[in-house]
Amino acid sequence: MNIFRILGDVSHLLAMIILLVKIWRSKSCAGISGKSQILFALVFTTRYLDLFTIFISVYNTVMKVIFLVCAYITVYMIYMKFHKTFDREHDSFRLEFLLVPVTGLSFLENHSFTPLEILWTFSIYLESVAILPQLFMISKTGEAETITTHYLFFLGLYRALYLANWIWRYHTENFYDQIAVVSGVVQTIFYCDFFYLYVTKVLKGKKLSLP
C-alpha cells in the first residue's frame, strides 16, 4: 500500500460521501444522473463478488462493503426516497450504448475465461465509462451545482491517483495489470475537460456553467 493508493481510496470515499451529503442535506438529487449511480452500483457488485471467495485484508473487505453500501444508498435516494426531485428528463443517456460494448469487450479481452474473472473485467471496463451519463447530463443542462462539481473532482482525482499508484507499483513491485491500467487511463481522460473547468471556474468561486 503506497501513499497514492491510500489517497486514491480516500478521494473515492470522499466523493461518494459528498454526493450522499448533498442529496441528504438538500433533500434533492437534482442535477445527479441516476443512470451513472446505477452503473457504479453495478460496477461494485460485479467487482466485489470476490468478497465471498478470497480474503485479502481487513482494509480491503471493509472498504468494499462501505463502497457497496454507499452506492446502493445513493441509488435508493435517487429512485425511491427523493425520486420526485430526480431530473429524469435530462438523464437521457442510452445505457445500452455503454453496456453492450462493455459486455462484449469483457468476454473478448480478459485474464481468464471464468465467470468471476469476466465479471471483474466487466466492472473495470464499465467503471471507465460509468460517469458518462453524468457528464452528458451536465452538458445537456449546461450547468452543475458547485457541490456536484466537488463530487466529480474527487471521483476524477481518485482515478488520477490510481494511475500514480500503478506507476509506483510497476517500479517497486513489478506489478502491472494491463486491463486495469488501460481502463484507468481512459477513465481519467474523460475527466480532463472537467478538471480544466473545475480549476478555471469553480476554484475561483464561479458556478460551473457551459457556454
Binding site: I56, T114, D177, A180
Partner: peptide, 10 residues
Amino acid sequence: ETEGPVKDEL
C-alpha cells in the same frame, strides 16, 4: 490463459 495479478485494489 493465466489469471491476472492478485486483485488487492478497490
